[in-house]
Each structure stands twice: as C-alpha cells, then as structure tokens.
C-alpha cells in the first residue's frame, strides 16, 4: 500500500503589497494559486517551473516558513496547517529543507561540528552520543570526521551542500524539501550530490519534494512530477509518463526548449511567444493563455478542469478536457 507522507490541498498564497505612508495593502502577489499534490513514502516528487511559478513558495509553506492564505497541509494523516508550539517543533523535526545556496544556509562562524550538534541539541536527539552520530552522518554523505572541524569557507561548494544535507538528516526526518539543491554546483559535482540523494533515499526511504527548474534533473531523480505555471499546477504525472507523453502545451514547450547536448539531434523547437507572467494579476482563467499557441475563447474565461488521463496523469487544459 502506498502511504502519502505529505499532502497539500488547494494551497494558495497571496503576498500583500503595501504602499503609501499608511502602508495600506494596495495589491497582492498571487504566488500560489490552488496547488494540490502529494508525496509518498520513499518517493521523490519533482516540482518544476520557471522563475515566479511559485514552486519555492510551495516548499516554504510545507516546511512552515510561511503560512498559506488558504488550503491544507496534511502530514502523516494529520492536518498541520495551523499547528503551533510543541506540535510545530515536533513537525519541524520530521520535515527538513535544503536550500539552493549552501553557503547562505550555514553560519560562517560555526564549525561543521557545532552546526550539526546544535540541531540535535535543539531537538534533543541522540542524547549523549551526538558526536558519534555526527561522525556517522559525515560518513553517510561521503565526508570524513576531519571535516567536522572545518568552517564553511574551508569547504568547497559540493562539500558544503553535503554538510547541509547531513544537517538535515541529523534529526532523522521523514521528509525533505530540496529547493534547487544543485543549482549552485558545477555539473561534475552536481552528479555526485544527486547520486548521494538517491542513495540515501534507497537506504533510509526518505521522501523528497524536489523543487527545480531543471528538467534533466527531474528526469534523473524524481518518480512523479508536477509542472507549475503562475502558481497553478498545470500537469502532474509519473515522470516517465510525463516525458513520454506530455499533454499540456506549456509542458510540451518547456521540454522542447531545453537544449540537448547532442549536436546530431535536429529537433523542431517550439518557441513560445511573450514574456513570463506578471504575478500581481489575479489568475481567474487558464494561467498560460497569453503564451499558448492553441488558445481558445474558453481559456480566457474559465479555469480548465482537472482532467484525469488515467495512470495518475492529470492535466489542466481545455484542449484535453
């Protein structure tokens, strides 16, 4: 039986824009507009979209760095949308986040050792054997005990990201949000980190939400994928199915736009017209209407319904409805 570790339902997040001397709300940034998705145990769910699509905001809402405007977050069968105090602290132990820039997520004045031990202390984990556990973690992420005594600036980018991953693992979480975990790394090092994440998942069945703009990474590492545009999910499917049989015009264009390092391949590219969307306009109909090559009248009037194409492939497009 598949168990869903995290489920989000109809999540929305609107950030107010304040202005004037009275700091009145003069508008909203509609960052997330109705996102529903789930991550199963031991699974990687990829969340892909371009800048401003709202993918990072979804991740931040799940780890409760910000509260949703509406919608629910269900973790392990419990609604944690409004938890506070002890329950929130408990939740934070089970859910961790890894950010894009490992240097910015570390305190430059703390050694790796104190960074790891502090997290364990806050959550009262591994009492009495914190140091032993820290060495074990370092090994697990492919580093050695000696690195525990280093400061962040004494580590390379790849090593720093490994330390940040080790720190996330130190509280034995069930679920980890990875927000562009390799975007700041070079390709040769990126492959090492991706394989580490895969290996850790195989051994300890962590569940990941992988947020990225890079479709190649999605294809390599995630089991299911959701495509977002302007804060709305437009298509979701098992990754293999999505790549074989993309249905939403945006997904199709996105895939064709990714440059492929094979000069013998001659593909017809779909060049989308127009600019990335402006998030201060409220989404009332299809979010992709302005750039869609197949736009119809109905697309400008109503939000397309969720269309189930079978085998867990869902799409929101009037063409497929």
């Amino acid at each position: 039986m598949v168990t869903e570790v995290v489920k989000i339902e109809n999540l929305t997040k609107h950030f107010p824009i304040v202005g004037g001397i009275l700091q009145k709300t003069i508008g909203y940034v509609y960052a997330v507009n109705d996102v529903t998705m789930s991550v199963r145990e031991g699974e990687t769910h990829g969340l892909v979209g371009e800048s401003g699509s709202g993918k990072t905001t979804v991740g931040r809402i799940i780890v409760k760095l910000t509260n949703p405007t509406s919608g629910r977050i269900i973790f392990d069968g419990e609604d944690i949308t409004r938890v506070k105090g002890e329950a929130l602290r408990n939740y934070r132990r089970k859910v961790q986040m890894v950010f894009q820039d490992p240097y910015a997520s570390m305190n430059p004045r703390m050694t790796v050792k104190s960074a790891l031990l502090e997290v364990m202390k806050i959550h009262s984990m591994h009492k009495g054997s914190e140091y032993e556990y820290a060495t074990k973690l370092m090994e697990r992420v492919g580093m050695s005990e000696e690195h525990l005594y280093r400061y962040p600036h004494e580590l390379s980018g790849g090593q720093r990201q490994r330390v940040v991953i080790a720190r996330a693992l130190s509280v034995e979480p069930k679920f980890i949000v990875l927000d562009e975990p390799t975007a700041s790394l070079d390709v040769s090092v990126q492959a090492q980190v991706l394989d580490l994440l895969k290996e850790l998942q195989k051994q300890y069945s962590y569940s990941y939400l992988l947020i990225t703009h890079n479709l190649a990474i999605i294809k390599y590492i995630s089991h299911r994928t959701t495509v977002m545009y302007r804060g709305v999910w437009v298509e979701t499917a098992p990754t293999q199915e999505l790549f074989k049989n993309p249905q939403h015009p945006y997904t199709i264009a996105l895939m064709s736009a990714v440059p492929v390092p094979d000069p013998t391949l001659r593909r017809e590219k779909i060049i989308l017209k127009g600019e990335p969307p402006n998030p201060i306009e409220k989404v009332v109909a299809c979010p992709f209407q302005d750039r869609c090559p197949y736009v119809m009248d109905v697309c400008r009037e109503k939000m397309p319904p969720d269309t189930d194409l079978g085998s867990e492939h869902l799409v929101r497009c009037w063409l497929r409805a």
């Binding site: 492959a191 991706l194 190649a216 990474i217 390092p261």
Partner: peptide, 13 residues
C-alpha cells in the same frame, strides 16, 4: 556527469 532530457542515463560524477 550531465543529466539529460533526451535519454535515460546513469550519472557518473
């Protein structure tokens, strides 16, 4: 070491 969209690959860093 390059993940790709055009084919299945095993990455080697």
């Amino acid at each position: 070491a390059l993940p790709r969209t055009d084919k299945e690959v095993e990455l080697v860093g």
